[in-house]
């Protein structure tokens, strides 16, 4: 089990403060500078995000405002499906309010792109992303901004390491009845991806059998982490590694489980809606998310770095050592709404 002590935490904090400061003061490249000047006139950027949890989202927003004084970042953090719902409500009302849209459900982008609701833009910084993230969309309607690792975790006081489930199919066993917790695909994009991936890998029966174990259904994928911390449920299914690691760092008795089949990896982009009220600030924000700024800010809260020069967070397995599973964006566009309906019929909510 990984635990960092106070001293390590302080060192980490010092390191991150130093790098953040260094980055905040690093010179801007010309495109960035031009965008910043234009963005200052717009004054703010509104970010609908369902990718990072509340704390790293706020940390990212603060880091953005620190590097670009005069451009305020409004962080509207919800679950991904709710963020998309808000965006749809905006569109339905004919009102543009969102500058940058970030969801864990890649399908959202395929839909938005097809409906011609996105703005084309390639940030200069995108070239410096990890190779797998460099080209999220060949047409540059969206750019990578998030690597979410969704796996399992357990409360070590309720379930020992040896007893803990090892694979995604282990949790279908009846002995996990009333012990599991999971998010909701109607709210969380990641849970939508997970449910879709499970059905693809193990057949339609998977969710039916999963439901028989009466998992506690929250909304966000983060919710089960709280349920485990509280001791309400022993095992969290499809929980984000970052939040779990943050919780562990605060002394909670949790442990990550890397399922034998692999983890759900949500390599998710962000996009600028073409009715964004602050387009220049939005583009500047895309430079920020693809640049070292975002990775540095979220890394301290155990989120994966998107860039090679920013080290990955402590306590998580390096990405090259894990099997990453995920449906493609195209599959997600159609598959997630479908699996959401299947889920609702199964679970009643």
């Amino acid at each position: 089990m990984f635990l960092i002590d106070r001293r390590q935490m302080l060192t980490l904090a010092a390191w991150s403060a130093a790098t953040t400061k260094a980055w905040a003061q690093s010179p801007m490249h010309p495109q960035e500078r031009a965008l910043y000047e234009a963005a200052k006139r717009e004054g703010e950027v509104t970010w609908y995000t369902g990718q990072y949890s509340a704390e790293p989202s706020e940390a990212a927003g603060r880091a953005f405002t620190a590097r670009y004084p005069g451009v305020r970042c409004n962080v509207v953090r919800t679950t991904s499906q709710v963020a998309f719902q808000r965006l749809s409500q905006d569109a339905r009302a004919g009102v543009g309010q969102c500058d940058v849209f970030s969801s864990t459900n890649g399908g959202h982008y395929i839909q938005l792109k097809r409906q011609n609701r996105l703005m084309q833009f390639r940030p200069v910084n995108a070239d410096g992303l990890l190779p797998i993230l460099r080209v999220s969309d060949p047409d540059n309607y969206f750019q990578s901004s998030f690597i979410g690792i969704y796996l399992m975790a357990h409360n070590t006081r309720l379930v020992s390491e040896t007893e803990a489930p090892k694979s995604w199919t282990d949790i279908l066993d009846a002995r996990w009845k009333d012990k599991l917790a999971v998010g909701h695909p109607g709210f969380s994009g990641a849970i939508g991806l997970w449910a879709l991936q499970m059905r693809r890998m193990f057949g339609p029966d998977y969710l039916v059998r999963f439901e028989r174990n009466k998992p506690q259904v929250g909304r966000s994928s983060i919710d089960p982490v709280t349920m485990m911390t509280a001791g309400e449920r022993a095992v969290g299914v499809a929980v984000p590694s970052a939040t779990t690691l943050t919780s562990i760092s605060r002394g909670n008795p949790l442990r990550l489980i890397y399922p034998t089949e692999g983890v759900i990896a949500a390599l998710s982009p962000s996009a600028i809606p073409n009715n964004a009220p602050h387009p220049n600030a939005a583009k500047l924000f895309m430079e920020f998310t693809t640049g070292p700024g975002l990775s540095t800010a979220v890394r301290t809260l155990f989120n994966e770095s998107l860039r090679p020069e920013v080290p990955p967070p402590d306590g998580s397995r390096p990405l090259d050592q894990v099997t990453m599973l995920a449906p493609s964006m195209e599959e997600a566009e159609r598959g997630v709404p479908e699996v959401r309906e299947v889920w609702r019929e199964l679970f009643g909510v």
Binding site: A54, T79, V82, G218, T226
Partner: peptide, 11 residues
């Protein structure tokens, strides 16, 4: 309400 989505009851 949005904060409760994540189940972070302390905050």
């Amino acid at each position: 309400y949005d904060l409760t989505e994540q189940g972070n009851f302390e905050v």
